[in-house]
Amino acid sequence: MDALKSAGRALIRSPSLAKQSWGGGGRHRKLPENWTDTRETLLEGMLFSLKYLGMTLVEQPKGEELSAAAIKRIVATAKASGKKLQKVTLKVSPRGIILTDNLTNQLIENVSIYRISYCTADKMHDKVFAYIAQSQHNQSLECHAFLCTKRKMAQAVTLTVAQAFKVAFEFWQVSKEEKEKRDKASQEGGDVLGARQDCTPPLKSLVATGNLLDLEETAKAPLSTVSANTTNMDEVPRPQALSGSSVVWELDDGLDEAFSRLAQSRTNPQVLDTGLTAQDMHYAQCLSPVDWDKPDSSGTEQDDLFSF
C-alpha cells in the first residue's frame, strides 16, 4: 500500500511530472533526481522514447528462454528487412502500455495491464526491452520488442512496467475491499429498513384510530445511509488515497477476473515476472533518469539497429 499512497501523494503535489519523457535525446524537461521519484509518476504514465523492432507469436506467457528466442527472431526479421526502425513513445501506467508513433502521434497499440504476463531486458541484446501480452483480438500470446538507447534504459522500462503492474494490483485490492464494505453496509441498511417496515402498523389501523404518522421519526431512520450505499452501487469504487486528485481509476471486468485468478494461483500475485536478476534490479533502481541518457562506457552510441 505504500507504493499506492506515495504515488497518489506525488501526483497530487505535481501532476505535471508524469508528462516528462525519457530517452528522447535531450528533449525532456528537468528530471527527478532518483528512481523513487520517477516511480511516483506512474499514475498518469511515464513516457519512454524507443524504437519498435516488431512482434512475434509465442506459445507460453512467460520465460527467459522463451523471450530470448522470440527477441532473436524479431531482431533477425528487422535486420533482414533493412528498413529504419519506427520511433515510438511507450506510455507506461497502472492501466497498461500505450504505444504511439512519434511522427504521426497515431495510436499503435493499447495493452491493458492485466494482459501483460512478462517483461524483460534481454541478456543477449542488452539494449532490447520486450514484453509478452495476450492479444486483445484473440487468445494468442505476442512478444513485442523495442530497441532502447542503452542497457540502462531497457532495464528502466522493464522495472517501470513491473512497478505499474504492482500498483494496478494494489488498486484492485483496495477497490475489492471498498466494494465488500459497501455491499455489507448496503445489506445491513436493508435489514434495518426491513425491520422498521415489519414493526410499522398498517396504514388502515392508523387511520381508524385517528393517529398521525410521525414524519420526524421517519426522517431519523437510516434511510439516507441505505440510499447512499445503493444509489451508486454500479459505480466502481476508487482508492481513497486518490481522493481529490485528477486521476480516475476504473476497474473493468477483465482486470477484476484476471487479478482474482492471480490472487488464487500465485504466492506473490502482485509481482510481474521479469528477466532481471536481483543485481540488475538493484543497479537500475539506483540510477537517476539522467543516467539513462548518458552514453555507455563501451563506446559511442549508434542510432541504428545494427549497432548491437
Rank of each mutant, 00 (worst) to 15 (best):
D2S: 08
L4I: 05
K5V: 09
A7N: 13
A7H: 15
G8N: 11
G8D: 11
G8A: 04
R9I: 15
R13S: 04
R13M: 13
S14A: 03
P15G: 02
P15E: 00
L17T: 15
A18Y: 09
A18T: 04
K19N: 13
K19Y: 14
Q20K: 04
G24Y: 05
G25D: 14
G26I: 09
G26H: 09
R27S: 12
R27W: 08
R27Y: 04
K30S: 04
W35N: 01
W35V: 14
T36K: 08
T36N: 08
T38V: 10
T41C: 13
T41Q: 04
L43G: 15
G45Y: 07
G45H: 12
M46Q: 11
F48N: 14
S49L: 12
S49G: 14
L53K: 08
G54N: 05
L57F: 10
L57I: 13
L57A: 08
E59N: 03
E59Q: 12
E59G: 12
P61A: 09
P61R: 14
E64I: 02
E64G: 13
E64M: 04
A68D: 13
A68I: 01
A69T: 13
K72F: 08
R73S: 09
I74V: 15
V75P: 08
V75F: 10
V75Q: 09
V75E: 09
V75C: 09
T77G: 06
S81D: 08
S81A: 08
K84R: 14
K84W: 11
K84P: 02
Q86G: 10
K87F: 13
T89H: 02
L90Y: 12
K91G: 07
K91M: 13
P94D: 03
R95G: 15
R95C: 09
I98T: 06
T100C: 14
N105D: 10
N105T: 01
Q106N: 06
Q106C: 01
E109D: 11
E109I: 02
E109G: 12
V111D: 13
I113Y: 07
I113R: 00
R115M: 09
I116M: 15
T120Q: 05
A121N: 14
A121W: 10
D122Q: 10
K123D: 08
D126S: 02
V128E: 13
A130S: 06
A130G: 13
A130M: 00
Y131N: 07
A133M: 00
A133L: 13
Q134T: 07
Q134D: 10
S135H: 09
H137S: 15
Q139T: 07
L141M: 06
C143H: 08
H144G: 13
H144P: 13
F146Q: 03
C148R: 00
C148D: 11
K150W: 06
M153G: 06
M153P: 01
Q155D: 13
Q155P: 00
V157P: 01
T158I: 10
L159I: 11
L159N: 08
L159Q: 04
A162L: 10
A164H: 03
F165Y: 13
F165D: 07
V167I: 04
A168V: 06
F169W: 06
E170Q: 02
W172V: 01
Q173H: 11
V174E: 06
V174Q: 00
S175I: 00
E177H: 00
K179I: 10
R182W: 06
R182H: 08
D183N: 15
K184T: 07
S186L: 04
S186W: 03
E188N: 06
V192N: 11
G194R: 00
G194C: 13
A195I: 05
R196K: 08
Q197Y: 06
D198M: 10
D198H: 01
T200H: 11
P202V: 06
V207K: 03
V207M: 03
T209H: 07
T209M: 08
G210K: 00
G210N: 02
L213R: 12
L213G: 11
L215C: 09
T218Q: 05
A219G: 15
A219H: 07
A221T: 00
A221V: 08
A221I: 06
P222D: 02
T225V: 08
V226N: 15
V226F: 08
S227T: 09
N229D: 10
T231P: 04
N232I: 08
V236A: 12
V236T: 05
P239A: 08
Q240F: 12
A241D: 11
S243D: 06
G244E: 09
G244A: 05
S245H: 02
V248K: 01
W249C: 12
D252M: 10
G254M: 03
G254H: 04
G254F: 09
L255R: 15
D256S: 03
E257F: 06
E257T: 04
F259E: 02
L262V: 08
L262Q: 06
R266W: 02
N268M: 04
P269E: 02
Q270V: 02
L272D: 05
L272G: 06
T274S: 05
G275D: 09
T277R: 00
Q279M: 14
D280K: 09
M281G: 06
M281E: 02
Y283V: 03
Q285G: 04
L287F: 01
V290E: 06
D291P: 08
W292P: 06
D293R: 01
D296K: 14
S298H: 06
S298T: 12
S298V: 07
T300P: 13
F306W: 01
